[in-house]
Amino acid sequence: MLTQIVLAAMVLIGLGLLLNLWALLRGPSIPDRLLALDTMYINSIALLLCYGIYGASNLHFEAALLIAMLGFVSTVAVCKFMLRGDIIE
């Protein structure tokens, strides 16, 4: 029973990922797309956590941590570029 519920939760999160993809493609501005990408990172972490419960293994949590860190650092880096990159300083 628990595995079915976790599977259902994974379907919901997958749906969320598809919505994020739509938002990413629709835009319209670059910060909008960046926000969608950042949400995609977090959703994929949620998916990995569900997969960990589903397969009863905690091997994936390190991958989830890596995604969390890379997602954060890359989002902040792109933001910083948008704030500073297009001005002649």
Partner: peptide, 8 residues
Amino acid sequence: VLIGSVAL
């Protein structure tokens, strides 16, 4: 998580 994506 889904609601967050719907809001987006």
